[in-house]
Structures are given as C-alpha cells and as structure tokens.
C-alpha cells in the first residue's frame, strides 16, 4: 500500500444478475449484486439455504457466466473458467485411487508445473495443515476433516491469489469444524491469500472474516455488509468470548431470521 499504487480489487462483482431458464419459468438466482474484495481480504458470504451463495463463487471462478453485469478477477474480466484461483467444495472431491499427497499434486500435474517445485510446495502445505504422516493414505482411509485438509492443500498448491471456498466444512462435525476454522485462519494469515468463503455457520463466518456479506433469500440481493472489527490474529475461544463477537453474530442472526421470514 505504501508504494503509492492504488490497490485494485482482487475480486470485483459489478451489478451481476443470474437468471436460470427452466421449462416453465425464469428464475432469478441473483439480483444485481455488487461486491468488491480487496487483495488479502477474507470475506464470508452467508444467507438462507439455496439463495445463490454458491452461484456467486461459480461466477468468480468463471464456471458460470452472469446473465448481466460483469465479474473481474485480479484485474481481468471473467469470461470462462479461470485457472488463477483455488477452489474447495463442500465434498472434498478427491480421487480415491490417489494418496493424499498425489491428490494434492494433481493440481500441479494438470497445470504442468515443475514436479520438483510442486513436490516441495506440497510438503510445505502438508506440514502446514497437519497432514504429516498421512501423505500416503488413500482418501477412504482419512477422516472427513483430513480429506478436507487435502482438498485445501490441493487448492493452495499453485499459490493462487484468490481462494474460493463453498461450504468447505459443512459436512464436518462441530469439533472438527472448529479445528478447521482455526487452521484456515492460520493458513490465511501465513499465505496472505484473498479468500471468499460461503458458509452456513454464522460463528464461522465472523471468526474468519474481515467482512461478512449477508444475502437475502432468492432472488439474492446483498442485505448488508458487516465489517468485523476484531483483531487480525484471533485465538478461537478468546474471540468467541469477546462482546463484539457476540454482538456481530447476534446481528447477523437477526438479519438472516428476517431474510428467511416472509418478505
């Protein structure tokens, strides 16, 4: 920032709408949503089930094109699947015939990265996410949390500047989920990656993020953008105990309650 260059957004969603054409009718999933994410920022997106949160991530990755409006990623308009991102889904989506390490390296093989460099980076990530000792395990030998760690490593292997996460911990039990939150927070701080996280968990959204975007139910519009005013380094239980944390989560819960109720 001190260089004097104006920092452009890592992700800029500009007046985007998405409409799906079904047999009978046209449904609007997203209605004129605009959102700017600064480089290195962690933004959580919460909203009622099926409101189109995941659709937003697909727009950013280029897996889906908006019906109107534009999405810009790292200064370049998104027109097709982008390769300069990392993506983590709710299901780990691992190749069951590959070991944890080789699943992570799939990213490198698909991209044609140098195998020495990729191997070094994979070992680093395995260390960072606590997968050491499980490198050679097959996915079905790993717990859900471990599988999701592998998916996270795979998404980070090529050092993407933007990481997209679609309810990555939704299938995990509460305790594992907390652990993963703590680890994701640490990984984010260590890598400085821009993160867009779609989640159902209000606590998770607040604990991890600089900002929380609250969407309404379909058609999704931005209900409110909440700045999370918590220290950048966050100890889990200490953060949970802070009054600001309680205030913000209560506010979001209220917003979501209103969003899911009648208009």
């Amino acid at each position: 920032m001190s260089s004097g260059v104006i920092a452009t957004s890592a992700v800029a969603i500009d007046d985007v709408s998405v409409r799906f054409q079904s047999k009978r009718a046209e449904t609007t999933a997203i209605e004129r949503v605009s959102l700017d994410v600064a480089p290195g920022e962690f933004v959580s997106i919460v909203g009622p089930s099926g409101c189109g949160k995941s659709t937003l991530l697909k727009l950013v990755s280029g897996l889906l094109q908006p019906s109107s409006g534009s999405v810009t990623l790292l200064g370049e308009q998104v027109r097709g699947p982008r390769h300069d991102i990392g993506f983590v889904f709710q299901r780990a989506a691992l190749l069951e015939w590959r070991s944890a390490r080789r699943n992570i390296l799939l990213q490198a093989e698909m991209r044609g990265m140098s195998s020495v460099e990729a191997g070094r980076r994979a070992d680093e990530l395995i260390e960072m996410t606590g997968l050491s000792g499980f490198e050679n395990a097959l996915p079905h030998e790993l717990s859900g949390g471990m599988q999701q760690r592998v998916a996270l490593c795979r998404a980070l292997l090529h050092e993407p500047r933007v990481l997209l996460m679609d309810e990555p911990f939704g299938a995990l039990d509460a305790l594992t989920r907390e652990q993963m939150n703590v680890e994701l927070h640490r990984v984010w701080r260590e890598t400085g990656t821009t993160v867009l996280l779609v989640t159902h968990s209000i606590a998770e959204s607040v604990y991890l993020a600089n900002r929380v975007i609250v969407l309404t139910r379909r058609p999704a519009v931005v209900k409110e953008v909440i700045d999370v005013d918590l220290p950048s380094e966050r100890d889990y239980s200490a953060t949970m105990a802070r009054p600001e944390f309680a205030a913000v989560t209560a506010h979001i819960r209220e917003l979501l309650g209103a969003a899911t109720g009648h208009d």
Partner: peptide
Amino acid sequence: VDTEMLELAATMGGGPVKTFVKIRFPA
C-alpha cells in the same frame, strides 16, 4: 465422475485430454 471433480479440473486448466487420462478414465 463427480460434476465437482470436473469443475475442479476446469479450474486447474489441464484441458480435456489430461482430464480424461488423469480423472475420467481411472474413475
């Protein structure tokens, strides 16, 4: 093959041949 796996492959940019050899055929 999972749609998610194929979407993931699209973001990895390996192209259809690599996607077939490394993901689809083994699956």
